[in-house]
């Protein structure tokens, strides 16, 4: 009995820690395989967009995703707002596809947890992603945070929290931080009611940060979404 228990314990330990301290390439490939097992999903979401110049209430709707890069937020009769295509809301779009060079950057602490840090550089220059830095929980084989430097859209930081759908590497909560350009329209065009300018005067900067928080309430995974879903108008 004790021997069986010891063997089982060892098996669990070795399974969980199979990448601990192991090859960064192997870890990255295993993670990528886990992420790419999801071909499509639809999920009920609550989305909060926090950008200095945007005042948007919490949006609820259905988010559709189909690999590699199709995404649509459906809000019946309402408007949906998503970042431009190259800053997609899914992890699969923020890690480089094809041949990559994986660089081990050691370990770091993230939210009180020890995580493996690695930098991934695509071998081909053609894509929009220049560099992705990942904070990976080796035990659960999940990316907890990514920092993606893109060619045209600045740096996109994504922080994930997992729960019920961790086996598919699908998060329950995602916060995306991104660089945004400033927004301005001439006052002569908008004829603002100046009394309502309750925004504090801000420093004039070329770029500013914004974030999108998404809470995934329920996923339906790999049900075979048709392309037509992404062509529909709300």
């Amino acid at each position: 009995m004790i021997r069986t228990f010891a063997i089982l314990l060892c098996a669990v330990f070795f399974c969980n820690a199979s990448f601990a301290g192991g090859d960064a390439n192997q870890l990255y490939e295993a993670l990528r395989k886990k992420i790419f097992q999801v071909k499509d999903y639809q999920a009920l979401v609550e989305m909060k967009i926090e950008v200095n110049y945007m005042r948007i209430p919490q949006l609820t709707g259905k988010l559709y995703f189909k690999s590699p890069d199709k995404m649509r937020l459906e809000r019946t009769g309402g408007l949906s707002i998503l970042p431009k295509k190259n800053i997609n809301l899914t992890l699969s779009n923020l890690i480089p596809s094809g041949q990559v060079v994986v660089m081990d950057a050691g370990y770091a602490m993230l939210n009180g947890k020890k995580v493996r840090v690695m930098k991934i550089v695509p071998e081909l220059d053609a894509g929009d992603i220049v560099l992705t830095k990942m904070w990976i929980d080796e035990e659960s084989l999940l990316a907890m945070r990514t920092e993606t430097t893109t060619r045209n859209d600045g740096t996109v930081i994504m922080e994930m929290q997992y729960a019920a759908y961790a086996q598919y590497a699908l998060p329950d909560r995602v916060t995306i931080f991104m660089d945004l350009k400033d927004y301005k329209l001439p006052k002569g065009v908008t004829l603002d009611y100046n009394q309502s300018a309750d925004l504090k005067p801000k420093k004039k900067t070329e770029n500013q940060k914004g974030n999108i928080q998404i809470k995934y309430l329920k996923y339906e995974i790999n049900k075979g979404l048709s392309d037509a879903v992404f062509n529909q108008k709300n």
Binding site: M54, R55, I56, I81, Y183, K187
Partner: peptide, 13 residues
């Protein structure tokens, strides 16, 4: 549908 209101320094939905 939802309405977009564009101010000189703000986008309101």
């Amino acid at each position: 549908g939802d309405m977009i209101n564009l101010k000189s320094d703000a986008f309101i939905l």
